[in-house]
Design a protein around this nucleic acid. Structure first.
Lengths: 210, 210
DNA sequence: CCTACCGATCGGTAGG
DNA sequence: CCTACCGATCGGTAGG
């Protein structure tokens, strides 16, 4: 990691790194085996330590789950929320939001899987925080759709809630099938999905030539 | 359940009922707490028996998971597969497939949740069977989309795989938000989703009036 | 970060 | 379907 010919201006703090390693391996194990199916001894073994040694770095198993899930929630939030003040028309904002959302999912498949599957095992307080984050994301997409209707970029007769549900389905469900190194980048998936949603499956109407 | 004024022509076999009760409660517990988070003693307690007594009815915990997951898979298959020979145009077939798919999800929220979350805990043989079922469903939607393109009902430039992914996202993700007794029936959700997918979010082009 | 250990709980079985 | 039990494993701690 360190180039011996160069000075090392900012030595990496090692304590932080170890915690991050634990988080990373825990994300993988929780996503593969589920929260209850992955044991602290499994986790320790993957890091080359004994089970009890983990507790020098973390306070417990649930704290690990909380941090993984809340970090994922913060990433979704950080990717989307500044789009609320974006001046572009709603169709462009939709394309951009889907691209960012899919980029977070695709770039964090393991913690996204933990976020979607294991959040129900959180203690009531953390559970409530995650529920609030989910509601915020849903409201973001509903507002985007409603804004598009107001702008005249979207149909006036849209069911705003169902439209937001459909968009969320597309970007969230990607955690089940998207694999890095596949045919399409997250942005390409977003472009195709947004194109389908905006223009629909039907062929464009022919020029009126009776 | 039995009308005392009427003769009972086919007495219900009680052994089958007990197994079905176990399946039903297991679906709920597995969906709420996850496969590894739900214990056999939890399950027995909900049925008013001791942990060991379950094994008079079932062979083990994993057999229970296999049966729940495979029953769900069979329901999806049974709902969709006869549509392959349906003579209607692809847009109508799409609407019907989504309605049936959503009806299975909405009518079996617990086992659908187990199907989507816990199948990764199956033994290799059952895992392979479920994977094959998933592939069949994906192929069904890809064929439907490709058929629509051939018929001229869908745009010629569709990305068939991504279109099928988008449809599957819509109908599968419903397990996370659909609740019985909500605003819309599964069929109404399907109608709205199919309408959005077919016609898109953009307003219809005005009649050419220059 | 390790050794050694705690009480609790796990899936499952024997014998009735 | 129950009682009583099996060995294994769980999350976590004490003391170094």
């Amino acid at each position: 990691m360190t180039d011996p010919s160069a000075p090392s201006p900012a030595p990496t703090p090692p304590a932080r790194t170890r915690r991050e390693q634990i988080h990373e391996v825990a994300s993988r194990l929780f996503s593969q085996r589920g929260y209850h199916g992955a044991s602290m001894r499994d986790l320790a073994a993957e890091l080359g330590m004994q089970g009890g040694s983990l507790y020098a770095h973390i306070s417990g198993k649930e704290a690990l789950l909380i941090e993984i899930v809340e970090q994922a929630a913060r990433q979704f939030e950080g990717a989307l929320m500044d789009l609320q003040t974006d001046p572009r028309p709603a169709d462009e904002r939709l394309r951009e939001a889907m691209a960012r959302h899919l980029t977070v999912v695709a770039g964090n498949l393991e913690s996204a899987t933990v976020f979607f599957h294991e959040w129900k095992h959180l203690s009531p307080e953390a559970y409530a925080r995650v529920t609030a984050w989910r509601d915020t994301t849903e409201a973001f997409y509903r507002d985007l759709v409603a804004g598009g209707v107001r702008e005249g970029v979207f149909r006036a007769d849209l069911d705003v809630k169902m439209t937001a549900n459909l968009i969320l389905s597309a970007v969230n469900w990607a955690y089940t099938w998207y694999r890095p190194g596949g045919r399409l980048s997250p942005r390409e998936v977003a472009d195709r999905y947004a194109g389908l949603l905006l223009d629909g499956l039907r062929p464009p109407p022919k020029e009126a030539t009776p």
